[in-house]
Nucleic acid binder design. Structure first.
Lengths: 173, 173
DNA sequence: CGTTTGAGTTGCGAAATGCAACCAAGGCCC
DNA sequence: GGGCCTTGGTTGCATTTCGCAACTCAAACG
């Protein structure tokens, strides 16, 4: 009983980075813009025509992405009308999240085959599914996972097996 | 909202399941509700109080999540006032996307240590970062990746065999 | 010069969101 | 069976965001 309460308190308190991520990427067109950026789109008019998004919304979204450090805005030297929007490292690191979403949509949507596809440059084979992994890289399924409060974490190397099964909300089924 | 769906069709001949995923999860509170659900929240009032979301919006979001097959709605037998919202398999498979987002927020946000943390049930060690992997499970960085159209994919001299984890359903990508 | 192009802004109606109050069926208690 | 609480909503209305079309404005082009 106390366990669930704790978790709920943590939920209410702001110790989750998810709202932070959603503040940057939770708006309607943010992920679509990001996807276009990953596909080599760099300019306002390109985004606009590719996504068919309202110009004022695009303007606003791009500004916010820049504000959040996800894209960099640079007025081009050789033609100062042009502005180049470029993914930053921070933006590039959203790729796993985006691909995870896309793969989920692909699996559960109406069999839409997404294009283009991300491939390993080495052998040009498509990448595998985005999964959760243990600290050693083993793929872990949902049923092998528990939610733990930070204070309950064990130092590495001490594999502790509990006899009592703590009421972890997520372990159900 | 039909707007994003339209984009599916006229994306310069490109298709992508991302809009499909965003149609289900792209709205304001969807990921927060999902997170609460993963943390053991099952009832309307629990969601409402923990997320501090307007009741009509919560009602609408839960309905949509149910419509999209992400959550199941069940009137409880022992107390028929109560309704239990439960993640479906489809909903559970959003976990990698959600964790990827959260880890990104954790890394790039103001050092927020998220709690609770997902741990491997075996050794109670926190899970690793969500990454992109080659078809054989090797972790791949962004610079080792290429975007390829489906038509350009190597017919594949060496047969691509998924000898790795059969526990995780293979999403085509 | 005038024209075109790139990257936006402005104005306005439509839709989504948030807030507070209200509602109604089911259970609880005597 | 009649009050009264609980649970899971709905309704009405104000505020915010979205989408569309038209407009601006500086920089290049010719």
């Amino acid at each position: 009983m106390g366990k669930l309460r704790e978790v709920l308190n943590d939920l209410h308190g702001d110790n989750c980075a998810l709202p932070l991520a959603l503040e940057a990427m939770g708006e309607r067109w943010s992920f679509m813009i990001l996807r276009a950026a990953f596909n080599g789109v760099h300019h306002f008019e390109e985004f606009q025509q590719e996504l068919n998004i309202a110009r004022n919304i695009l303007s606003n979204r791009l500004s916010k992405l820049v504000d959040h450090g996800i894209m960099a805005r640079e007025v081009m030297a050789e033609d100062r009308r042009k502005v180049r929007y470029q993914l930053t490292d921070k933006g590039i690191e959203l790729l796993p999240a985006m691909i995870a979403l896309r793969q989920w949509g692909e699996k559960w949507g109406a069999g839409v085959p997404s294009t283009p596809v991300l491939v390993d440059a080495r052998d040009e084979q498509p990448i595998g599914p985005v999964t959760l992994t243990a600290h050693d890289g083993r793929v872990i399924g949902y049923k092998e996972l528990l939610w733990k409060h930070r204070s309950e974490l064990q130092p590495l190397g001490q594999a502790r097996v509990r006899a009592d099964n703590p009421a972890t909300p997520v372990a159900a089924e």
